[in-house]
Design a protein around this nucleic acid. Structure first.
Lengths: 334, 334
DNA sequence: GGATCTTCTGGCAACGCTGTCATCGCCTTT
DNA sequence: AAAGGCGATGACAGCGTTGCCAGAAGATCC
């Protein structure tokens, strides 16, 4: 910055003021400084300004991993919003328990970001407490959190509408498949199941726990076994509701392998509206992942700037049922 | 840090030494300091140390976007390697031309990261020059770059083997489909096509430009049209080689819509080994995305630490043909 | 027992910026 | 014409660390 000052023939103070866009700089000086900065392709050292202002110009995002469509899409939505605000994006992805413990132990985000966005994270009370101790703005994304701003969809309501759609098609035996994976979408998961059950109850259908399946792992092969168990029930389901599209895809593959026609014999419904859902013709509940990301960033900015009421705002974004080819009325006589 | 020092009854210098793990601290003092730091759950302000040491403890990654499987998987591979090195991950995703221009204009990574990893980025000479001016360690990922360390796979060789596989199955008319999308995989793309053509030439097959298709957009609907054009040729192809799996999936969807059986009438081959490739039974060339990410980080660390020879190391990782159900011998009589 | 090492610790400047205050012209007001 | 106000700029301290040097205390050697 001193170089720029010298080249422009002004003091560093003036350069600082110019570059920050403060109004008290004359037009001619501003032009000179900007020219000098450009010629030297000067980029500010954020470390130094952070030290003085206490702002880092960075927002940290904590994610359970990076490989699901939903998380990537959410992150994608954040990127432009952050850029617009001149904020950099710091990503903490904690894939396993060790990394997770390490994150909450060392809290590396502390003092290294202006806000922490916690995405789709099923927190233990201890972890939640640790974050609260962090003393930095927190925004919960894709989950509701008491006492903190959050952005999410109404998973229960969406699932309710999904199941209702299946019921309207004539289905009476509807299975719900969820991942038993620990990390990840536990908050959403619980709510989706609740919505599903609610729809069944509303329609006067009896709950049957044999139709609620926890299938292990993201990548495992438990899916085939699960399908086998469901289809060998005395009264097998005519529709399968998977808690995410990623999951529904694996389900479709398992069904294809077992030569079960979709939707001829069973209907399949997903949740997310993954890009591939369109390609594969999967009926699903679209959730606006990019919007969620963008909104989360806006919310974070409000909290950082200490806007009134921002500290406990809960924004619920809409979901939409997208009917495609994987759902149809149940086969006659079932 | 002053608080910790006071609580431990030592000077800040000693606290600093202890926390950095320097050896010249007595065991008793070290224990006292560590206890104090833990009790106050002290976290160091990186900004301040950056200012002194010139190290930021951060690595920046520049990506064309965040939504392809390959990029997510690569990023996933980087995360644990960075964590292990105590480095934070700064993500710059530039989705459109405006953002891209902005990045190269302002170079926000400058002085805000210890190294920049450039992933799958088809750079203009001007952009490349701009990066070189940046005066910071650069690592090119998923692309070869003259004069800079890089990690990539031999796309040409992989594609060659893919096409050879199709030829070995008996195919003689093989189409190659690439995206005409600007951002993204231009480097890989060019090489994959070259490898494909090489395999044709090696087998004594004539090149037919009608079989090389550029299909627009990531998400558009140009795929149906492309399939139509190919299948209405006088001598239609019996095999289709898509430059990425993402692309192959859309191709599969278009073929299904057109009622063209795969692999009955045409075989389809992809590139990447996307998670869904297994699910959909797509034959593909697996590239070790996570390994690429991890290796890139190791390389970056070597360059940062100025290890001998690191500045121009080129690491080529292996690819593997994964035969699945989407490829088979051509239908009899074609 | 004094000189010389060694091991450990403290003091202090410096990193590159920002915020505050002081200063300097020039314009307006009476 | 003097007083006051205002807009633009510069000087300087200080943010929380680290690196360097000095120094204290204890160990070793002749």
């Amino acid at each position: 910055m001193a170089d720029v000052a010298q080249r422009a023939g002004v003091s560093v103070s003036t350069v600082s003021r110019t570059l920050r866009g403060l109004s008290t700089v004359s037009d001619t000086t501003r032009a000179r400084v900007e020219a000098a900065a450009r010629e030297l392709s000067f980029a500010i050292t954020r470390s130094a300004s952070s030290l003085v202002t206490g702002r880092t110009g960075r927002v940290a995002v904590l994610l359970p991993h990076l490989e699901s469509w939903f998380l990537s899409a959410t992150l994608s939505g954040m990127a432009p919003a952050l850029r617009e605000a001149g904020l950099d994006l710091l990503v903490y992805s904690v894939a396993d328990v060790r990394e997770r413990a390490d994150f909450f132990d060392r809290l590396p985000a502390r003092r290294n970001a202006d806000a922490l966005l916690v995405v789709s994270f099923a927190l233990t009370p201890a972890e939640r407490a640790r974050l609260d101790d962090l003393g930095m703005p927190l925004v919960f994304v894709s989950q509701h959190a008491e006492g903190r701003p959050s952005v999410y969809v109404d998973d229960a309501d969406a699932a309710l509408r999904g199941t209702r759609h299946l019921i309207n098609l004539g289905h009476r035996r509807i299975a719900f498949l969820q991942t038993s994976d620990e990390t990840g979408f536990a908050w959403s998961s619980k709510n989706r199941l609740a919505g599903h059950l609610r729809a069944l109850a509303d329609a006067g259908l009896e709950r049957d726990d044999a139709l609620i399946m926890s299938v292990p792992g993201w990548k495992g092969s438990g899916m085939g076994a699960a399908v086998g168990r469901l289809l060998s029930l005395q009264e097998p389901p005519t529709a399968l509701f998977a808690e995410t599209d990623d999951f529904a895809f694996r389900l479709l593959a398992a069904l294809r392998e077992a030569n079960v026609p979709v939707p001829g014999r069973v209907s399949v419904m997903g949740f997310d509206d993954h890009v591939m859902a369109g390609v594969l013709g999967l009926t699903t509940l679209a959730q606006p992942a990019a919007d969620i990301g963008r909104t989360a960033v806006h919310l974070a900015r409000s909290v950082i700037d200490d806007v009134d009421g921002a500290h406990e705002r809960h924004i619920v974004l809409p979901t939409e049922l997208v009917p495609r080819g994987s759902t149809a009325p149940p086969p006659a006589g079932s």
